[in-house]
Nucleic acid binder design. Structure first.
Lengths: 246, 246
DNA sequence: CGCCCCATTGAGACGGCTCAACTTGCGTGG
DNA sequence: CCACGCAAGTTGAGCCGTCTCAATGGGGCG
């Protein structure tokens, strides 16, 4: 596996299953895709062994060969600037695809690390490019996925540029709630996969401010907080606080 | 032109020229592209009449049909949130391509307005998708362009999340300087295409803070400011201030 | 048990925001 | 030609939200 510097390929073979059986396929793959074409995609995908918390999938500067779909667990991506300052650029949950940075200059543009024990599907990009030439709906799908990433990054710029601490934290909670419920999990009760540190880093806040904000939201009865367990009591108020501005 | 709600198509025919003659083609199109294939792209492109300052090319919610390459002038993109608050999400200069938001759900995700008299090339997306199925280097090119947009948006998240006012303003200046010099214009003397208002909005600062920051950078001898005319006196210091953090 | 990491909470400092006054450049109309 | 209004930018004074620094409280693990 020389193309797999971090050697995440599954060497045991016991988690193998196919895309057509995967309950996440509606998220990773176009809905309107023939079973035959799904199998062609399935044939080029490599499923990983479990990746444990803190383990990297790739790092900035690594040669770009693949994009990755999260299969289970949760993943964060981050940049390091010249001074070694970390910026979390995204959190990825099952069914979501990461690695679209890196196509631009054939080198990965960020670091990717697992926040808990996770598994991913590795999708060799050159292979998927070839398939995309033959399956128009697949080409369209990847254009759409990248476009959605751009849109969500722009929303993030809005959040960072215009919102105060309450607006930023609640915006993240709403996003996570939506993404959990897309997977048929509860939209009201969720377990945060990331630390306060990662939340603060992502949102441009210190951990103290994140913590104070959670406490304030709880005091106002909008959410209940117990460590990483969050319960949303008042969804309407939560959404209205989202717009809170600087 | 029913597919052209803002009717920017050139109706005079006097600015027509071809991609193969365009001195920006190295920016819009793959370098390694056959002349024959460039002509095929050229055939589907519609060149716009001049678009004057303040005129919109499209707005959020408009049906998505095309992406656009800036030919001359300068363009800004912005979001409006539910409360009507504006967030500038990008500035686009000649040779740069915009409109990749909107592929995701077939509806434009932002507003696009000209900051001065500009011209653009309209690239019908369905046509370019068809061509991309036939010209692998073209498919790759659009994946790369979108990937680069994602990378630059992530850098922007870093800027908004971690840098103070000086860091944000100088980061924008460095970016503009680099982009001007890519077009063989001076990297040291440039005219800002956007107002202080737009700069502040983009960078998450008020216009007063932007103004004070320009004044301070001038007092420190790093730049000279005369309205929108900027001269970079000390490039090294400028780059070091870029990293200034909150 | 003791250590370490993560999270919470408090007190004070500071950077950028708000509000306000003033300048400059430009177009319009008397 | 000047008077005027308007928009854009600059500068100052005071305020406020978030950061910094510091102390304390759990929970997991050797």
């Amino acid at each position: 596996m020389t193309t797999d510097p971090y050697n995440i390929a599954c060497t045991h073979g016991f988690i193998q299953s196919s895309c057509s059986d995967c309950n996440l396929k509606g998220l990773c793959l176009p809905i309107a895709m023939d079973l035959k074409d799904i199998d062609r995609v399935n044939d080029i995908i490599k499923r990983s062994r479990p990746i444990h918390a803190g383990e990297h999938i790739y790092r900035t500067g690594d040669g770009f060969t693949s994009i990755f779909a999260v299969r289970s667990g949760s993943i964060k991506t981050y940049l390091l600037d010249d001074d070694g300052v970390e910026q979390v650029t995204g959190f990825y949950l099952p069914g979501e695809i990461l690695g679209f940075d890196g196509i631009g200059n054939n080198t990965h543009g960020c670091n990717v690390v697992s926040m808990e024990t996770s598994t991913v599907c590795e999708i060799p990009f050159e292979r998927i490019e070839e398939l995309s030439l033959q399956i128009p709906v697949l080409q369209r799908h990847f254009f759409q996925l990248m476009s959605q990433q751009i849109e969500s990054d722009h929303q993030m710029m809005m959040t960072l540029s215009k919102k105060n601490a309450e607006g930023r934290v609640t915006t993240l909670l709403v996003s996570l709630s939506n993404r959990f419920s897309r997977r048929n999990l509860s939209a009201k009760s969720l377990r945060l996969p990331m630390s306060r540190m990662d939340i603060g880093n992502f949102l441009g806040l210190t951990i103290e401010t994140v913590s104070r904000t959670f406490s304030r939201l709880q005091k106002e009865g909008i959410i209940n907080v117990d460590g990483r367990e969050i319960h949303i009591n008042d969804n309407e108020k939560l959404h209205s606080v989202c717009h809170a501005s600087k």
